[in-house]
Design a protein around this nucleic acid. Structure first.
Ligand SMILES: [Mn+2]
Ligand SMILES: [Mn+2]
Ligand SMILES: [Zn+2]
Ligand SMILES: [Zn+2]
Lengths: 151, 151
DNA sequence: TTTCATATTGATAATGATTTTCATTATCAA
DNA sequence: TTGATAATGAAAATCATTATCAATATGAAA
């Protein structure tokens, strides 16, 4: 029983609909956070205690390849992941990262101007440096409200 | 004998002027590249074969803390470093990264508009999310000329 | 349904970058 | 020149992520 868009998508691409894959999708579907592999693993264990951390990594690798999740590198030594097309989120967004508690805030408010400038810059850069630009990242690092008080 | 601005700076802050520290400064001073700890270690060995990789890491950590070098995370599993205030470079610049050969290009050409927008966005974001923004990163990922042909 | 080829799994070991530990050494103020 | 101690280098420890490999679950075909 495929009960989500993403499960449909997996099948369509010829991948098997396995327990770990369903679990990972469900976990990511229900959060606005940017979870690490370990975070996901801990949540997954509560649903099915026989799941292996290795499978979480493999699943995340697969999902990243087929553009179902986005892998982020926010300057920690571990990666974080979020579902692409999560109905809880705006499609295209940039990030605000607290360097103390590692909280990540998505923002899409001021994206119009940003994206315009990004596109313009991309064009100029690719011309000048003969670079084929695939994607870009914009990260604002700082302290969230809570951490400002604590720090 | 302190023969550079950076050596002066180290002394000023009360740190000892040691062999590994001088070597790391000299290596970084003379390159436009973004070197990994290992890269620096290999170069350092040619200057003084008794230097340890551990000291390279320790030195880079110290330099990062006192704002002498900038540590970068370009999505590889290892970090890369560049000297702040390197006379070979424009002070403030953003980055263009080849995902295939890992080459990094500094660009400062179109920074005026970018920085303007960044500042504006920063203000709006810090108000809306009560976030204290310390710094930001803008990375364009893609393929350099060479890698476009090879890929 | 049952069967079956094989895609996928989970336990374990391996990796690779970075850190920690700790005994030894080098720096620099007195 | 001396001495307190900051800093070093070798080796072991960490920690996230990958590779291995025998066992298992999936889903198309019978
Ligand atoms: Mn996000
Ligand atoms: Mn740079
Ligand atoms: Zn915080
Ligand atoms: Zn390249």
């Amino acid at each position: 029983m495929k009960d989500s868009f993403w499960q449909e998508h997996l099948c369509y691409l010829g991948f098997r609909l396995t327990v770990p894959r369903k679990i990972v999708i469900n976990i990511l579907k229900e959060t606005e956070k940017h979870l690490s592999a370990e975070d996901i693993y801990v949540k997954a264990l509560k649903i099915n205690p026989s799941i292996g951390l290795t499978s979480i990594y493999r699943t995340l690798l697969l999902f990243t390849k087929i553009n179902v999740v986005q892998k982020h590198d926010f300057g920690e030594k571990k990666a974080r992941y979020e579902l692409i097309n999560n109905p809880l989120k705006k499609e295209h967004h940039h990030h605000l990262i607290c360097t103390r508690c590692k909280t990540v805030i998505d923002y899409a408010d001021f994206m119009k101007e940003e994206v315009e400038l990004m596109t313009k810059t991309e064009n100029k850069l690719s011309k000048k440096y003969h670079f084929k630009i695939i994607y870009h990242t914009v990260h604002f690092y700082g302290l969230c409200v809570k951490c400002q008080k604590l720090a």
